[in-house]
């Protein structure tokens, strides 16, 4: 049995009157890929953002329940949200590099957290760019603007940027939905490599992608966690009618 990285207990989230997450409880394994699937608006992104407390900034949000990451209740008063987010990195749906150089993009996180040593910074940046499988493409143009890269390269740069703060958990919200098939394949391959050192939670609308890359899959429907199981089992023998309908494309 693999170790738990994240354990969610009776999580409820409200956007004002809108009950967006209903009594979610689930454990997420360490060094594994967990896919979140479900129709649009079912709460996948919302759930993902509860794991690094990015919902805190939205006015009118109320959160109940408990989330432990590495045995630490992340909503307790002792937790600094900055430290939590250093440990739980995030990659967004659309590539969003800063309008700075490639180097400065990756250096952003480490610098924020106080790394000034040029040599260490250089090493860390190379390691992160290699980790995101983009080093060879950019090593000769680190001083160029990141916004000049292709969409797929930008997204891998954003992954490198997230890796540079050395998180333990990586959250990805539809990281390939804006990319072409070749870039998508590269990132899927990358995710397979990354899971040896990171715990990855990924939202995807693509069933094949979930089946290809994830160890476990969670199916959400209008704020409820309907089914959560090993990926092969969820896709081959779904226990719930709604899951079956969704994965066979009968709705959503």
């Amino acid at each position: 049995m693999s170790q738990q990285a994240i354990s969610v207990d009776n999580l409820n989230l409200y956007y004002g009157q809108n009950h967006a997450l209903k009594n979610i409880s689930m454990d997420i394994d360490k060094n594994s890929v967990t896919a979140l699937i479900g129709p649009s608006g079912c709460g996948k992104s919302t759930f993902l953002r509860t794991l690094n407390r990015m919902n805190d900034m939205i006015p009118g949000v109320k959160i109940e329940g408990q989330i432990n990451i590495h045995n630490q209740n992340i909503y307790s008063d002792q937790v600094h949200v900055e430290m939590l987010r250093k440990n739980v990195g995030m990659v967004f749906q659309a590539p969003n590099p800063f309008p700075k150089s490639i180097y400065d993009n990756v250096a952003y996180g480490p610098r924020i957290h106080g790394l000034r040593d040029k040599k260490k910074l250089d090493e860390l940046i190379e390691k992160s760019l290699r980790g995101a499988a983009i080093w060879d493409e950019v090593k000769d143009r680190l001083k160029d603007k990141a916004t000049g890269l292709s969409g797929g390269q930008q997204q891998r740069l954003c992954i490198a940027r997230a890796l540079a703060v050395e998180p333990e958990v990586l959250l990805m919200d539809e990281p390939t939905s804006a990319l072409d098939p070749i870039s998508t394949a590269k990132i899927e391959e990358l995710i397979q490599e990354l899971k040896t050192s990171y715990t990855i939670v990924i939202v995807t609308h693509n069933m094949q992608q979930a089946a290809r890359i994830s160890d476990k899959t969670a199916f959400f429907l209008s704020g409820d966690l309907i089914e959560y199981n090993k990926t092969e089992q969820l896709f081959s023998t779904p226990k719930h009618k709604q899951t079956e309908d969704y994965i066979t494309g009968r709705f959503g």
């Binding site: 990015m54 969003n96 309008p99 952003y108 996180g109 924020i112 703060v165």
Partner: peptide
């Protein structure tokens, strides 16, 4: 300033 840039910064633990 695009909000996705600010979110990227916050998500890395910036204050």
């Amino acid at each position: 300033v695009p909000s996705i840039l600010k979110q990227a910064s916050y998500a890395m633990g910036a204050s």
